[in-house]
Design a protein around this nucleic acid. Sequence first.
DNA 1: GCCGCTTGTTGGCAGCGTGTCAACAGTCGC
DNA 2: GCGACTGTTGACACGCTGCCAACAAGCGGC
Lengths: 191, 191
Amino acid sequence: MNELAARRRLDPDARRTEILDAALRIYAERPYADVSTTDLAREAGVARALLNHYFGTKRALYLEALRELLTIPEQAAADLPGRGREERAAAAVEWFLDSVEDRRTLWLSVGLGLSGDAEIDAVVEDADETAVDRVLTALELDPGDEPLRARVRAFFGMVRAASREWLVRGSLDRPAVRKLLTTTLVTILED
Amino acid sequence: MNELAARRRLDPDARRTEILDAALRIYAERPYADVSTTDLAREAGVARALLNHYFGTKRALYLEALRELLTIPEQAAADLPGRGREERAAAAVEWFLDSVEDRRTLWLSVGLGLSGDAEIDAVVEDADETAVDRVLTALELDPGDEPLRARVRAFFGMVRAASREWLVRGSLDRPAVRKLLTTTLVTILED
DNA sequence: GCCGCTTGTTGGCAGCGTGTCAACAGTCGC
DNA sequence: GCGACTGTTGACACGCTGCCAACAAGCGGC
């Protein structure tokens, strides 16, 4: 880290954020395994050792970035338009598609689904749990109904795969995805 | 590799298979990142360099193992019982659940979904493509209908997530998964 | 039965990546 | 200006992967 920038001393929180942002930028383009701590440090404009100082471990930094990425903006989702359950479901799907379209690169970079790695999966599952709450609340259903929650989590599996069909393969356009997800969501909510 | 076993010279195919089997055994229990070539070599009872000789790269060996694992037994799926589309769909789901229950450990070890790694994803997608063919053929639908294929691939996303709910979380029992998947499959086939 | 050749198999080397630690140097209070 | 606190760094130790030259098991020729 003696390239051009002089050594500057920052507030820990600011530095932490800088590093985390750099990591998000990198992981948006390359998978975890392809990124070295040297890459991360260079992107953040900082010595490699500083990553360890702030996050302990390369993996921990990644998990932090992942958590950040998966945290859905709090607002929205609360007041959806539409009266009937079906209309509200459609609105929820629409809202979701908007937010995915925004974060397209990042969303896809995560890889869509469970990784088989316990810690990573825990982060993803955490985010899913929150999303389930949002969905059920928005649709005025009981967030305490465990089998129902399970069905919604299963539905998220389809949501991820469908996003991929839409954004990566281009095999479905947005209206098609919208219809597929809405119909499915309504279906699984019944029983 | 000078522990107990003497140096034995095998037919290349036999040795290759031995190594691949060892890899499958290991990856059934531990994620890719946690396994070193030393571990793989020890499990296979072979020098580390031999892995490179046969597979070139640790990653290539993994991909080979993954491909092996995801290859669905050819038979079955062909002649499903049931007359109507709905009955046949139910039978297909049932058959799938059987095969997952069999390979439980291995199936779950893969991690369920896309990894974000291009090569790994390619293997998974290949397997999915074959599975789509099987399903559509079994249900007497047109395997050439691309949007339909896309919907089925999206459905597989739910299949994976639902398997997880069933086998890992225990939040759904087999009949519930069966019903969820069957209903959903029938729904997405329409439109 | 011995010899030599083919080639399956191995140990060791070179390079790279991660985590740690003692030392360096901004910045703030005096 | 001066010292001290602490953010920041370079260098080191260790582990892991891919490569290569050397070793030796098994087979055919004599």
